[in-house]
Design a protein around this nucleic acid. Structure first.
Lengths: 147, 147
DNA sequence: CCATTTAGACAGGGAACTTGACCATATGGT
DNA sequence: ACCATATGGTCAAGTTCCCTGTCTAAATGG
């Protein structure tokens, strides 16, 4: 039973690793070779609702300073833009540019390709059961770098 | 369909993140607060068969130099020991000490606790199906840090 | 109106990784 | 047996990404 649990744990780690590598190489193939996994988590947060640097830092679980540098990088590369925050003259809202949205879509496509390869390793019923089980146990909330 | 795949991908990432955090906090509770996730992957490799620094570097996917520093750290903390390689006087085989084995067991226990919490979110049949599906699609081979 | 908080940036430092150079030992062709 | 080349491991220097500490400008709340 314990051995089974460890095998399950390592399977999750292997799949996560395979997924991240698939997204990274898929992005590179599509011309996005200047984004890191951490940037993807920022895109996920910002594609839902614009956020300030401080809110993004809270979401990513890193300091404002590190987030500030990450944001500078993404703005310099054309993935993000600043907009004034109407309710706070100190703050600036971060929004995805067209390029940022295109990169996000490319990442989702690359992820879907990896998931597709998983689908092909199982029967249709098995894959459907896997999907529903994963969705049932995965906790909602922040999607952050694992370590 | 594509949305489903993305949801599946994020579920895997969330579970991997939850698992790694669970292992790290479980290890800290048991007194192993000086090991990082990357060290765990080294333990996994070395608990099977002893390896040289260069072989460990190949397994972890990092340079020999970075591996050398990691090994120094683990030896200084009592997790690893060197043994002469009978077939190559330049090389030294790395083996887990008692402490290293105890730490590995503690990590497996902490991982099992997290997997147990997943088991409790599903029916017995659903969890069994999840396990078999994960084992079916996870590729064997190196277990490396995801990113 | 002033004390405190908060958004964001700047400076300095550390941890973990890289590339490049190096020595000692192995290995393989002649 | 010998020498050219490859390999195990380390040292040195530089990069990246993160941290803590500090600061200014603007917001917030007695």
């Amino acid at each position: 039973m314990r051995d089974e649990d460890w095998a399950t744990a390592t399977a999750i780690l292997r799949l996560a690793s395979e997924l991240v590598e698939g997204i990274q190489s898929g992005l590179a193939e599509r011309g996005y070779d200047d984004v890191r996994p951490a940037h993807g988590f920022a895109f996920v947060r910002l594609s839902a609702v614009p956020a300030t640097t401080a809110q993004l830092a809270e979401y990513l679980g890193i300091t404002k300073q590190a987030t500030s540098e990450l944001v500078h990088h993404l703005i310099a590369r054309g993935y993000l833009a600043r907009r004034p925050d109407p309710s706070d003259r100190r703050a600036q809202l971060l929004v995805l540019t067209d390029r940022g949205r295109a990169c996000t879509r490319a990442a989702e496509q690359a992820a879907a390709e990896t998931v597709d390869s998983w689908r092909n390793r199982l029967s249709t019923e098995q894959f459907a059961e896997l999907q529903s089980a994963l969705h049932a146990i995965a906790r909602p909330g922040r999607l952050r770098p694992a370590w």
